[in-house]
């Protein structure tokens, strides 16, 4: 097994203090290997965005470690982290507001080069033009324009160009296609897939759309209320979910086909408040399989099959066993 590019261990992020303290991320561990795309899914408030921001040290980490390329980022001082940051870049949901409205496109994309003092004026211009062409924006036409003159999809392309210009190793994409129409969303997903190959990128792809995440990811991690529920290879996790929450999520997702039967196990209610999370397993209040043990004991993430981990006392293993035996 190759060593992971990014390794997150027992990450805890707390917002607020004392009585109003919320553990948005309550001790999660996962790894992202070089060249892979790890999808991170979950409903609003599950802590997926906080996780992404905490990896880039954009949120203060309460405890735990984030090891990137052999360095624990949580131990770095400000300047050392600043130096490291060119290797980790983030893409945001709202592409228009994440671009400075008063700067021209060429300035926006060139800014990382200026910050890192890479090359001279002429070589920077060349790099910017090349990367803009790569993301499908004509630098001759677009370079002197402002973000407001572009559509959401084009702004997302410009954001991608800006993030790639500093040659990062890891991209954290936070809901980067959720605000786009499907036809444009498909353009951006395809572009990202191509650029990932070409630039040898590693991706942490955070999104709530299960179909999008499955499409782009090699492995998928599912979060609920600040905890990791399940991590596994995309196709396997979607076909044979081990965690009852993953199962419920998947059954609620809609397929654009009127002949597919609607048989979702409708989860009752909504996630409880993270201010006062349930004891033991955090999903137990909505779980159809919950028993006494679930309230008493926090389930640890354990590996049930190579690469497929689950944090549940009563995982859906029966289907798993039959799946494995049928493969032999």
């Amino acid at each position: 097994m190759t060593t992971p590019l990014l390794s997150v261990k027992d990450l805890v992020v707390t917002y607020g203090r004392k009585r109003s303290a919320v553990q948005a991320v309550a001790g999660i561990s996962f790894e992202v290997f070089e060249g892979e795309t790890l999808g991170l899914v979950g409903e609003s408030g599950c802590g997926k965005s906080t996780t992404g921001r905490a990896i880039l040290q954009l949120e203060a980490i309460t405890s735990g470690s984030v090891t990137f390329d052999g360095t624990d980022l949580t131990t770095l001082d400000r300047e050392a982290m600043r130096q490291k940051r060119s290797e980790l870049q983030m893409l945001f949901q709202d592409p228009i507001s994440s671009l400075n409205p008063r700067r021209k496109i060429s300035q926006i994309v060139a800014e990382p080069l200026a910050i890192w003092n890479r090359g001279d004026q002429a070589s920077r211009e060349q790099v910017v033009n090349d990367i803009l062409l790569e993301v499908g924006i004509d630098p001759a036409l677009a370079g002197d324009r402002y973000p407001r003159e572009f559509s959401g999809g084009q702004c997302q392309r410009i954001s991608i160009a800006r993030s790639l210009v500093a040659n990062p190793k890891l991209l954290v994409c936070d809901e980067m296609v959720s605000a786009l129409d499907v036809s444009v969303q498909a353009q951006i997903i395809n572009l990202l897939t191509d650029l990932k190959q070409k630039h040898n990128l590693t991706l942490l792809f955070i999104a709530h759309d299960l179909a999008v995440v499955k499409n782009v990811s090699d492995r998928v991690a599912v979060m609920y209320l600040g905890k990791m529920c399940e991590i596994g290879p995309s196709d396997l996790l979607y076909e044979k979910p081990l965690h009852p929450y993953t199962e419920a999520l998947l059954s609620a997702a809609l397929v654009p086909d009127p002949n597919v039967e609607l048989n979702h196990t409708v989860l009752q209610g909504e996630p409880p408040s993270p201010l006062n999370p349930p004891s033991g397993c955090r999903f137990r209040t909505r779980c159809p399989k919950a028993q006494d043990r679930c309230a008493a004991e926090v389930p640890e993430l354990r590996e049930l099959a190579p690469g497929h981990q689950v944090a549940c006392h009563f995982p859906n293993t029966t289907t798993y066993v039959t799946l494995q035996s049928s493969e032999h």
Binding site: A211, K214, S217, D218, D235, Y238, A253, V255, D257
Partner: peptide
């Protein structure tokens, strides 16, 4: 449209 029933 990405589909949940299509392979990754």
């Amino acid at each position: 449209t990405p589909r949940i029933d299509a392979p990754s």
